[in-house]
Amino acid sequence: TYTWNTKEEAKQAFKELLKEKRVPSNASWEQAMKMIINDPRYSALAKLSEKKQAFNAYKVQTE
């Protein structure tokens, strides 16, 4: 089980997950979700809006 003390740690864990699963920077949210949804870190960020925000930040960083 994973635990995160801060929102920032949770966001980092979520981005690490995207990186580890090699989600391409041109992937849509739907494509990315299919690649990461079974990992416990997918739940790091509770709100869908937070997940999408972190995903978009990840995409910008990896382009």
Results as ranks from 00 to 15, higher is better:
24 P>A: 06
58 Y>L: 03
20 E>T: 04
4 W>A: 09
33 M>T: 06
58 Y>V: 02
34 K>D: 10
51 K>C: 05
44 A>H: 04
55 F>W: 07
35 M>R: 05
4 W>Q: 08
18 L>Q: 00
52 K>M: 11
15 K>I: 15
28 S>E: 05
52 K>L: 12
46 A>E: 15
43 S>V: 10
13 A>M: 06
60 V>H: 13
10 A>K: 08
21 K>T: 09
61 Q>F: 12
1 T>P: 15
38 N>I: 06
37 I>P: 01
40 P>A: 07
2 Y>L: 15
46 A>I: 09
34 K>L: 08
27 A>V: 06
14 F>H: 00
54 A>M: 09
16 E>K: 05
60 V>P: 03
24 P>Y: 03
12 Q>N: 11
16 E>G: 09
9 E>Q: 07
33 M>W: 05
43 S>Q: 14
6 T>C: 07
10 A>Q: 09
12 Q>C: 12
11 K>H: 15
13 A>L: 08
45 L>T: 01
17 L>E: 00
52 K>R: 09
21 K>F: 08
36 I>E: 01
6 T>H: 04
57 A>D: 15
9 E>R: 02
2 Y>A: 15
17 L>S: 03
1 T>E: 15
44 A>Q: 04
22 R>A: 11
25 S>R: 13
42 Y>R: 00
54 A>S: 05
53 Q>A: 11
54 A>Q: 07
23 V>P: 04
27 A>H: 05
61 Q>K: 08
31 Q>I: 09
32 A>S: 03
19 K>A: 14
5 N>D: 14
39 D>A: 01
62 T>C: 11
43 S>R: 11
30 E>Q: 10
62 T>D: 10
51 K>P: 02
15 K>C: 15
19 K>V: 15
32 A>N: 00
54 A>W: 06
40 P>V: 11
3 T>V: 15
20 E>P: 02
63 E>L: 11
26 N>I: 08
31 Q>T: 11
31 Q>D: 12
51 K>S: 02
24 P>N: 04
7 K>Y: 10
39 D>Q: 00
3 T>E: 14
31 Q>L: 12
12 Q>K: 11
33 M>D: 05
19 K>R: 11
4 W>F: 08
6 T>W: 04
18 L>K: 00
54 A>P: 01
38 N>Y: 08
33 M>K: 14
27 A>C: 10
59 K>A: 09
34 K>T: 12
44 A>G: 04
53 Q>N: 10
11 K>D: 14
53 Q>D: 13
34 K>N: 12
52 K>G: 02
14 F>Q: 00
23 V>S: 01
32 A>P: 00
50 E>I: 03
41 R>V: 03
30 E>V: 08
5 N>Y: 11
38 N>K: 11
7 K>T: 10
25 S>M: 14
63 E>Y: 06
61 Q>R: 06
51 K>I: 04
3 T>S: 09
42 Y>F: 09
1 T>V: 10
49 S>Y: 07
11 K>Y: 15
3 T>A: 09
4 W>K: 07
1 T>Y: 13
14 F>D: 00
29 W>K: 01
49 S>F: 05
49 S>D: 12
61 Q>P: 05
46 A>T: 14
24 P>Q: 05
49 S>P: 06
19 K>S: 14
60 V>A: 14
34 K>C: 12
58 Y>P: 02
5 N>V: 12
53 Q>I: 09
58 Y>R: 00
12 Q>S: 09
58 Y>N: 03
5 N>W: 09
63 E>C: 13
62 T>M: 14
36 I>A: 02
47 K>L: 14
48 L>Q: 11
23 V>L: 04
35 M>L: 11
6 T>M: 05
57 A>P: 02
58 Y>S: 02
40 P>E: 08
1 T>G: 15
29 W>N: 00
30 E>F: 11
3 T>N: 11
22 R>F: 08
25 S>K: 14
19 K>M: 12
28 S>W: 02
25 S>P: 10
20 E>W: 04
7 K>L: 13
59 K>S: 05
61 Q>Y: 09
3 T>F: 10
44 A>N: 03
14 F>M: 02
35 M>D: 05
47 K>V: 11
55 F>V: 03
36 I>R: 00
42 Y>C: 03
24 P>E: 05
54 A>Y: 05
18 L>M: 05
46 A>G: 13
37 I>C: 13
23 V>K: 03
1 T>K: 14
21 K>W: 05
55 F>E: 02
24 P>H: 04
20 E>Y: 05
6 T>G: 06
5 N>F: 13
56 N>E: 15
35 M>P: 00
